[in-house]
Structures are given as C-alpha cells and as structure tokens.
Design a protein around this nucleic acid. Structure first.
Lengths: 335, 335
DNA sequence: CGTTTTAACTTAAACGTTTTCAATTGTCAT
DNA sequence: ATGACAATTGAAAACGTTTAAGTTAAAACG
C-alpha cells in the first residue's frame, strides 16, 4: 500500500504538504501541488478510507436497514428497486452503502452496528417499525431518513398510497363498477392508508360495500390471495372487481378466478398495485398503480445526504411521491 | 464515542490490557478481564472498525461486484437471490458487504475502489467478464470468487447449466416432443454452455432440429422473446415445444402464443429457466429448471471466507451447483 | 530600513486500535 | 537465600490520515 509518506519521500516534502496538496487546500504552492499529484499518480496512490474515517469521523458510507420477514429486502421487488435507485444516487456522490443488521454474533444492535461501521447516516425501510432496536436508531443522533413510515422529528419519504388508492378506485368506478372488493396487506401504516383511502374514495362516490368485501391477506402472498379470492367468489353477491394489495397477490387471485371458469375482464375485473414487471407482461395486462421506486430511492438519498452534509438542518420534511396509474386490460367497462 | 481509553481510565489499567481483555488474549488475569468486560458493557463500548481495520489490515468487509447492463444487479431476480444468500452467510460470520463500483467521481477503478475500502475479498458476478477493469481485479492479489464464470487460478461457483439443460431436454423428449426450439440469451459463457448442452442432449436422443429452431434473444427480455416466438410460430413447420432462457422470457412467449389463439400446453408446450417466483404462480405452472440460488450464494460466501482466512490456500476449485427440474403443466404429453 | 503581512511549508498531535517488548511481581525448586 | 520461571501488566510504536499551530523566508508597507 503506497501511502502519503511514500509520496512525501518521493517529492522531498512533508506528509502534511502531500495531504494538503491532494485535498487541494490553499496553503501550498501550485508548483508543489502539481509535483505531488504527479508523484501520486505515478506511484499509484489511493487514499485509505479507514484512516480517513478514523481521523475525520466521516466515512462516506451510508447504512441501509432493509429487513423484511425474510431478513432481507433484497428479494423484495418493490424495495429492491427503491434500493437500487438509492444506491445509484449516493454512489454518484461518492458514498458507499453498508447493510445494517443486528448480528447475534456479538449481539450488536442496529445502532451499535451503525456506530461500529461509522456510517454517516442511515436509511430505514421495510422493517418492523415498532421493533425497539429500530426505535433506538430513530432516537439516536444519527442522520436518518425513513421510507414509507413517519416518525416525529425525522425526515420521511412516502409513496402516496392515499392518492394512489384514490386514483384506482376512481378509475374502477368510472368504468361503472359498484361492487368493489379489496384484499389488503399486513397491518402496517401503508395498509392503513390504503384501506382508509379505499373507503373514503368509495364514500365520495356514494358507494357502500358489504363488510365481507374487505379482506386481509399478506403482501406478496399469492397463495393466500388465491384463497381469499375464492372466498369472495363464493359470496352470494360476489364483487365485479377485486383489488389486490400488490401485483403478485393479484396473480394468485387471477389463478383462482380462472380456475372457477371465469374470464378476466369479461366476468370479473382485477386490479393490482406496484406496477411491477409482471403486471406489464401478463395477458391481459394488469391495471395497477405504479409506485415511483426510482424517485423514492433518489429522493431518500438526496435528503439523507443533505442532512449529513448540513447537520444543523432542522427542517423535518415529509416527501410524498406520486404514483402513476397504469391502465391494462384487466378491468371491464360496464358502461 | 467511548473508546478503550475510557475503559482503561474507569478500571485503572492500561489501554493495552483493555484491548487484550476484550480480545480474550491469554496474557491477562481472569479477574481483570472480568472487570474490564463489565466496564465495557457499563460504558456501552463498541469497537471502531476503522481503527481496527487500519491497524490490522482486516476489515471484515467483503466487496460485491454485481453490475449488469442496468448498472446494478439488485433488480435482477436471479442475482438478487444469490446476493441475498451470500449476504446472509457472510453476515453470520461477522462480515459486512460493500458494493464495488467504478466511480467516475474520482475515477477509481474496481480494484482501486476495493483497496480504498480495504475489503478482505471480492465476489464477482453478473458483469462483463471481459471488461479490463474486471481483469485487473482478477489478476490482483485480492481473494476473489467468481459466480457463473471461470477464470484460471480463481475459485468459481457455477450453476450447472449443462446438466440443467440436459435435464430439461430429456424431460421434454420423454414427453414425446421431437420438434424442440430454444430461445437463448446473450452471448455469455452461461449461454454457450446451455446451447452446447441443448444440442448434445438432442443428439444423444438422435433428434435433429432445423437451424431456425435456435434463436438468440436477451435475458429477461419478454418483449424480444415475444417477437422471436412469433417468428417460430410462423415457420412452415413450427416446433411443438419452445424452451426459453428464463422465466420472464417465457412469459413473453406465452403471450405471443395465446395471441395466436393457441393454448398451452395443448397446442404448444413451453419451458422456462430459473425457477423464479412467477413460474410457480402462472397458470398452467411453468415447467422450469430451478437454479439453487440459495446454495450458490452460500457456497460462494463460504469459499471466499475460507480463502480470506487461509491465505496460503492454493487450491483452485470449481464448485458446480445442481439445479432442480420443477415440473409444471406447461409441457404436453404427446405419448 | 525596520516592521508587518503573506505564502509556503513543517512539526507534531491526534483519531482508536493492536501488538511487541520490557517490566514487575510472585512462585518454586535448588 | 538464590536464581529461574511463569503470570500479569504497562509503555510505546505503529497503521494512514488530517489539521492546528508553528516556522521560515520573501514580499509589502510606511
């Protein structure tokens, strides 16, 4: 490893001068700067992030807490896309990311792990937001941005589930549907928002639905959605349109519907959520609400970096990111 | 930040003794050890990885090079699963992962970035393996494991594409098919293996197919697969079974087939690859070859860690990981 | 010309560890 | 009592940086 000292020797100057030259500080002569930089290149010098971090308390490393039931958000379609965009954005600014986990190894908590690695800030998504360990992190001094969940005194980036649900309900109603069912996801704040918006949007159109039309399932669980769909189809007065909490669940529902000998959208209409890849390649294309994962990840990154680089910032923001309704062919026009 | 010094003060011993106590070295009295450990817990001490890395040249950090065309393997289903398993395995052993990228920021190469972050080793997958930057990394002194590509003198973990393709062809032939087409992926070593195995397996069964039955598409590109499928269907003598390079592509093909008014599997049979989630929730279920992403990621992690912790190891291994044929309902029995 | 200012550079301490080596004690066999 | 040995501890250097404070010489000023 070639270090500042090697360059200093090569150039016959002190280590300090080398450091200042490379960091382009203004109390070193232009000529020396040039000489130093040339030598650095010649010797193949690259800085050592550990030494730098140790000295400056800035790691240019961002912690990512993406933990779902399966322990990792990586295989979670929605969050993988958000993370991808987040990663791209921070990398463009010279940051790297490190996954924060709680290692039973030497039982570090999330917060301890964050400190251990000296991350400059943390983005939190896709976790059990009531986990005491998460709360510790939230209450810490670290810069934090959360995704899809609001905490007091913390910046949050939120997919607009209320508007999204509203758009979908409006769309379905416009198509003439009145018997609309919703198979919702787990009991999270996202789900609460969507269910609330579902009811309010129907009310606005003066549509009332029986209690059985609202069912609870689990996100990304086509098997359970399949069962719930069967229940809906078996009702004395089944819905004409079923909305699902995500596209994967919708696929489970579609199977149940087809198995019952019904066709989509002629006999029954189907709506998904997420605007994931599969929605576009199903036949008929699934009408769904595309969440703007690219923007969510990017904005989260921008806000977090801003917070890191302007520590005195005290402005608590709620960034609400619009989705976009993708019209497929899965909803029949009853008009 | 509470450091060793704070504990030393608290206990009235030297920093050296504290360090040795916490690392459980054997030249410090049991009684002192206990006292030190207690104080450490009381003060809420956690080590500083930067300082440790600086001193020991061991970061317990592993570089991950997962770069596809879209710049990141995160949204790539197959690699996301491999990475997830890899991550899980290394974390259980106290390692973290850092994504290696080439930052145009200060134009660090992959190798330079790896050194900058002081990673203990690197896993490489999902890249253009002929990129000069990748070659630099391969030729470096760093411990490296590659996935799905073989380099001399480097450990590789490989999904058994040859056997996998063979299994699929055998299965299809056993079902009585003789006119079998394959829509292959990009020109990579994976593709070469599969295409080679496709032909050899057919030969073994003494089946010959027209040249037009082999087409080249792109991985995870249902739109292109859709077009290629149309071409196949338009042939004077179309195939009775079409095999696709992945499940997503198969989905594109399925749409083309249905659009042509044909039904699966009665009129034409379809086979995918990967065993991804969608294969299981399609109707009919897609017959596909499930790659053992869990095992691939785990073995890559194990081998890499072993290499890191036993630097003198010189054994170059090729770990070939079996897949598993998942039988769906997408292949007709012609017997 | 003497004084102050500025520019260019160096010294040295510090960040939090690990690790070598030396120092101090106590124990035990002779 | 003496020397040898083991057990325990501490001092200090080192890893590669950054940075506050200090030094020197030249330039600017009145």
């Amino acid at each position: 490893m070639v270090s500042l000292k090697d360059i200093a020797n090569e150039c016959g100057v002190s280590v300090a001068t080398v450091s200042k030259s490379l960091n382009d500080l203004n109390d070193v002569g232009q000529e020396t700067k040039d000489r130093v930089r040339e030598a650095a290149k010649k010797l193949g010098y690259f800085p050592n992030s550990s030494a730098r971090t140790l000295k400056t308390n800035r790691s240019y490393n961002i912690g990512v807490l993406f933990v779902d039931e399966a322990q990792s958000g990586l295989t979670h379609d929605y969050f993988a896309h958000v993370l991808d965009s987040f990663k791209r954005t921070v990398e463009a600014q010279g940051y790297d990311i490190t996954f924060i986990n709680s290692r039973h190894n030497n039982n570090m908590s999330y917060l301890e792990h964050s400190r251990y690695r000296g991350v400059d800030g943390v983005v939190i998504a896709c976790v059990d937001f009531f986990d005491p360990q998460v709360m510790d992190l939230i209450r810490s001094q670290l810069p934090v941005v959360t995704i899809d969940h609001v905490f007091d005194y913390r910046i949050a980036v939120l997919s607009d589930n209320i508007q999204g649900m509203h758009d979908l309900v409006e769309y379905v109603c416009d198509k003439g549907h009145r018997r609309i069912a919703y198979i919702a996801g787990d009991d999270t704040s996202v789900t609460k928002n969507r269910v609330g918006s579902f009811y309010r949007s129907l009310e606005k159109r003066e549509i009332s639905i029986p209690d059985e039309y609202l069912m609870y399932s689990t996100y990304r669980n086509p098997d359970l959605a399949y069962l719930k769909t069967k229940e809906l189809l078996a009702l004395p007065v089944p819905p004409t349109c079923i909305m699902y909490c995500d596209d994967y669940s919708a696929l489970g529902g579609i199977n149940a519907i087809r198995e019952a000998g019904l066709s989509i959208p002629d006999d029954i209409s189907v709506v998904g959520y997420d605007g994931s890849y599969i929605a576009r390649i199903l036949d008929p294309k699934l009408t769904t609400l595309k969440q703007d994962t690219e923007r969510i990840g990017r904005v989260a990154a921008e806000k977090l970096i801003h917070l890191i680089e302007n520590p005195k910032t005290t402005l608590i923001q709620r960034m609400v990111i619009d989705g976009e309704l993708l019209e497929g062919g899965s909803v029949a026009d009853l008009n």
